[in-house]
Nucleic acid binder design. Structure first.
Lengths: 220, 220
DNA sequence: ATTGTTGTCCATCATTGGGTGGAGACTGGG
DNA sequence: CCCAGTCTCCACCCAATGATGGACAACAAT
């Protein structure tokens, strides 16, 4: 071998649905000394299959995936392989997903705008058993920590609000009285630290509690 | 040469701020017969410089860029080189940007989730002087066509609404009476085909009239 | 100049929305 | 068992919102 004395390479699985991005990651990683891409997956189900097949040291995973979300994939894999290490890689997304991913056991969270050096450094850091959260993400996490969890009902109402429903419509939809809707709104306004439904809607979108995509297709 | 009788390759400039994605595009394109990446740029200003330097046949460009937006880049380049051909490549973004990009002279609009084949096919199509708009995009464009343009003042008000301001606050901010704010709201509600401010806010975000990012940082 | 159009502005009125207090159901610990 | 805590539900009150109608100025077109 030309390489004098290297350790075993870090075996990486890349999970990402965007072809271009996946290609980019693989191309970047495969020229790096000590890192080896052992598998690729374009959706959640495939990700789990590939993981079982290759048992990689590190799984680089996007949160927005077809079939299963990244968070679900992390949860399921950790169920059977608790020592699995994940680096979440996403364009932007809401705070909610970041939070969930870290709770599910992701060790690092990177934005797609990062430099190659950051990516490599993070892979090595996580492989060494440590975590890495960029300052920008940490800041948003901190904000989130202060806020309380929404109850299921409050979540239902918030979802309707984001979809532009009036209190009366929400009441009909959820089969409760309009007064009750107002109560839920009142308490979720408090939890989201906002003062009216419009702010609640934008806050929900910012945090990823509801996604912009879900607005296009009316729900069945 | 090993290749028997090829035409001159299509010379492509890649403009994209996400390192990973840019790498992916370059890696993908450079293995394609008849396509040659002649330059890369990570922001709007660099894009214009690289364009002048290389005069590519096709410019593959993201809309969300530092320094100058993709739309601005397209406009400026077409000012001096009207025959320049652009393929807009973006993750998702709002309808507004799609519309503006096409108006500015982009010939095609692709989502980053596309297959390699689609990308290559589109490059060839555009290089041959034709356009290519995927059905999903075309649909959204069609929706947009029916809607009227907002007046500057209406736009101001809408922006404030998305930022969660009350009518009174908007009135103070814009130095007009609250009644006037209501008038503007009323007419912009009509133009956006919605019935209240919350729907207006989400519609504005969907269409990219206002972006989620701009919500985080309070404007100066 | 005059007509038409469009954008900005304002006032009044009915409706909606948010604030407050409080009742019954259900949970987990002591 | 009983208590504290939480979730869900509802009614009443007043402020904010949206609908309507109309005044005024700027501008284009003939």
């Amino acid at each position: 071998m030309a390489i004098p004395e290297t350790k075993a390479p870090i075996r990486v699985l890349v999970v990402e649905d965007h072809h271009v991005v996946r290609q980019g990651l693989v191309a970047l990683l495969n020229v790096v000394e000590g890192v080896q891409v052992v598998g690729e997956a374009a959706d959640g189900v495939e990700a789990i299959a590939q993981f079982r097949k290759h048992l990689p040291n590190i799984t680089l995973i996007d949160l927005r995936l077809p079939r299963l979300t990244g968070v679900e994939v992390i949860q399921r894999i950790r169920m059977e392989t608790p020592q699995a290490r994940f680096i979440v890689l996403t364009t932007y997304d809401g705070d909610e997903d970041i939070f969930r991913a870290l709770q599910a056991g992701a060790r690092a969270y990177l934005l797609k705008g990062m430099t190659t050096e950051e990516l490599i450094a993070t892979i090595r850091t996580v492989h060494a058993g440590r975590s890495h959260i960029p300052p920008a993400i940490a800041e948003r996490l901190a904000e989130r920590m202060g806020t309380e969890e929404l109850t299921p009902r409050e979540f239902d109402v918030l979802e309707q609000i984001v979809h532009g429903k009036s209190n009366k419509e929400i009441a009909t939809e959820l089969e409760i009285s309009e007064a009750t809707v107002k109560t839920h709104i009142n308490s979720l306004l408090g939890k989201l630290c906002v003062t009216d439904r419009t702010q609640a809607a934008t806050a929900a979108l910012q945090r990823g509690i509801v996604t912009l995509e879900s607005l296009r297709k009316p729900k069945p």
